[in-house]
Every structure is written in C-alpha cells, then in structure tokens.
Simulated scan of single mutants.
Amino acid sequence: MFMTPFVMSAVLSASPATQKPKAPIPPRVVTFEGACDASGAVVRGDGSFTVADDEDNVIRVYDGKTGGRPVSTVDLSAGLELPAGKKKAPEADIEAATELPPLSFWLSSHGRKSSGKLDANRFRFFATRASEDGKTLVFEGKPYTRLLEDLLAAPQLAPFGLASASTRAPKEEGGLNIEGMTAMADGKTLLIGFRNPLPQGKALTVELLNPTELPQGKSARLGAARLLDLGGLGIRAISRWRGRYLFIGGPIAGEGTSRLFTWEGKAEQPSVVDGIDLTGFNPEAFATFEDKEEILLLSDDGSRLIDGVECKRLQEPSKKRFRGVWVRLPAKP
C-alpha cells in the first residue's frame, strides 16, 4: 500500500459549549495507478472519471471509489497534431478539463517549459466526445492553437501584463501558466483560471464565451476578466458543483500548501473552506459528482518519491501512482 503523510482535520459545525467536539473523520484516500501527474478531470455517470496527466498525452479512466489501474486509456498525441518524437510525441502539458455535454474540453498550460524555453506544443485547446461504443474518445474538430494570441489581444486583459508574462518561465514570478477551467452556470461559457501571473497579488480569471467554436477554427471570444483574492495563491483547478464554484488555490512555484475555496460567482474574495488541511497533498484537479455528498480532489504526485525516485521519473508505468481524497464540504450558508 502506498502510504501518505496527507493529513485532514474534520469540518466541525458550531455547537453549544456543553456539547463535546466531534471526533475528526479520517480522510478517505484512494490510490490510482499507472500515472503520477493528475491534472484536469471530467466525471462520468457511473462514478468514474476521465483524467489527464500533464507529463504525457494519455487520457485515463478510473473508478473513483476503488482506484487501482485505469479502466481504459487513450493516447491523444496523433489528434493533437504534435510532431513525432524519437521515443514518443512531446507533451502538450494538459492542465485543465471540463464538460459541456456531449463534449469534454481540455486546456494546456499555454506557458513555456520550466526552463523558460518556448514550446509551441503547449498551446492547445481541444474538445473530445465519447465514441459510439463508449470505449474511447474522438476529437471534435481540430485542436485550437491561437488562444494565447486571443488572450494577448483582449483589451480587458491588457492591464494584467500577459504579454510580458508569456515570455517568462511558468513558475517564475510574473510568468504565465493556466491550470483551471470549468463550465459556468449558463451551460455555454467556460471560466478559465490562471495559476500565474498574480496581478495585485490576486488570481486572474477570464470567461471564454464560445468554446464550441474554437475546434471549428473560429477565434476565441473572451468575456469578463476578474481578479479573485485567494490570499496570494494562484488557481490550480476550478469546478462547478451544486450551484457554486470550487477553487484549489496554490503557490505559483509549487512550494507551500494549497487551500480549498468556494465562490458564489460575485464577491471578489471567495470563501476558504475551513477545517481542511491539505498539507502533504498537491491537489490539481476535481472530480465532482452531482449525485454524491463528497467531492474528489486529485493530487499531482509527480514529485513524490517512490523507492527513492520521483514518481514522474519512474521507468515502469506499473509503479506510478497518484492519490485522490474524498472531501465533504460544509453546507452552503
């Protein structure tokens, strides 16, 4: 069994002074095998979810309850129109995912490599749908590669210095890195969230108004841009669940502890979900099932050591793994 130092304290409701505090509820941690760097995920109706790994171009389906090996896998490299590599196609750095049925949308980081070198393979926004037999994914249209150009040209984003940010490494202060995306309440628009930059120390979001048109080659139409106060953290993931938005906020450079936030869509400062300690956990994706009382946080465990080696550097896929933890949120106020 893959042990974890992850610690979570229970969410306790207010109670009279005479009532003893409830005992902490142990977190329900599930281990998923065959990958390390869980990033964007999309739920399925049978309690399973589809998840990307930002270190390859493979989409994997897992059972959210039992974990273990993937139920199925599909390598999207060919459809992403990536150049052939010596051993494998270069990674597209897929960081976020969401769904507007019957389509799933996937978004790469749109940032440079960690070294600061430009890599055009990381500029991809694309859509997939399930095949007729439900066993694989097929592309809807073609990958869209001009989203960064659209972002830089948008007047509402001009105050935030994205042109300068796009020339820096993604984890450098003031760099550019997109890691969050979710469907909005209207069922047509997507909300995109930046891990970096942090203008005025706040997390940047922008609305994508026409996601279904991008795979058909049409330029992005961008809506409102907003800054959200996550206490100096950038956006690692976004989801919409039971009428509210969920954010994972994390440091731009990967060092430090992430926090979970909820947002009703209006206030500048989302609410911190108290009582959840994410120490030792690196959440980068949500699997949020509308019919379940808990949400599933997925950890990017690429840097965790397994037999003394970073998970993402293991040569044997069977040894790779990442963690998920089921979290129960407090009731909406």
Rank of each mutant, 00 (worst) to 15 (best):
144 Y>H: 06
73 T>Y: 04
314 L>E: 09
53 D>L: 10
192 I>P: 00
304 R>T: 10
201 G>Q: 04
165 A>D: 04
280 G>E: 08
299 S>T: 00
137 L>N: 02
208 L>I: 01
238 I>F: 14
263 W>H: 04
248 I>E: 06
42 V>W: 13
23 A>W: 14
325 V>M: 01
154 A>F: 11
32 F>V: 03
208 L>D: 00
210 N>M: 05
249 G>V: 09
38 A>N: 05
100 L>S: 05
145 T>V: 13
222 L>P: 04
272 V>M: 11
192 I>M: 07
95 E>Q: 07
206 V>H: 08
204 L>W: 10
41 A>K: 12
286 F>N: 03
144 Y>N: 07
322 F>I: 02
41 A>Q: 13
223 G>A: 09
44 R>S: 11
262 T>P: 03
240 R>Y: 13
263 W>D: 01
330 P>S: 01
175 G>L: 01
128 T>M: 08
111 G>I: 03
158 A>H: 12
16 P>V: 12
95 E>W: 05
255 E>C: 08
225 A>H: 06
323 R>C: 10
185 A>E: 15
289 F>L: 13
71 V>L: 15
17 A>Y: 13
25 I>H: 13
308 G>H: 11
215 P>D: 07
174 G>T: 03
183 A>H: 02
13 S>F: 15
271 S>L: 14
133 D>T: 00
284 E>Y: 12
208 L>W: 06
63 D>I: 05
46 D>N: 08
280 G>P: 11
42 V>M: 10
285 A>M: 10
135 K>I: 01
59 I>Q: 14
304 R>H: 11
207 E>V: 01
332 K>F: 12
76 L>F: 08
159 P>M: 12
211 P>R: 02
281 F>Q: 06
178 I>G: 00
158 A>C: 11
196 N>H: 04
159 P>R: 08
153 A>T: 01
51 V>C: 01
50 T>N: 06
220 A>H: 05
308 G>Q: 06
101 P>E: 15
213 E>Y: 12
249 G>T: 00
59 I>W: 13
302 G>H: 08
80 L>P: 00
291 D>Y: 11
2 F>K: 14
105 F>N: 03
121 N>S: 12
290 E>I: 10
52 A>T: 01
117 K>E: 15
281 F>C: 08
281 F>V: 02
158 A>T: 14
296 L>M: 13
296 L>E: 09
199 P>E: 09
257 T>C: 07
190 L>M: 13
110 H>W: 09
4 T>K: 03
41 A>E: 10
110 H>K: 09
107 L>V: 00
127 A>N: 06
89 A>I: 05
207 E>S: 09
199 P>K: 10
88 K>W: 14
132 E>G: 07
283 P>M: 13
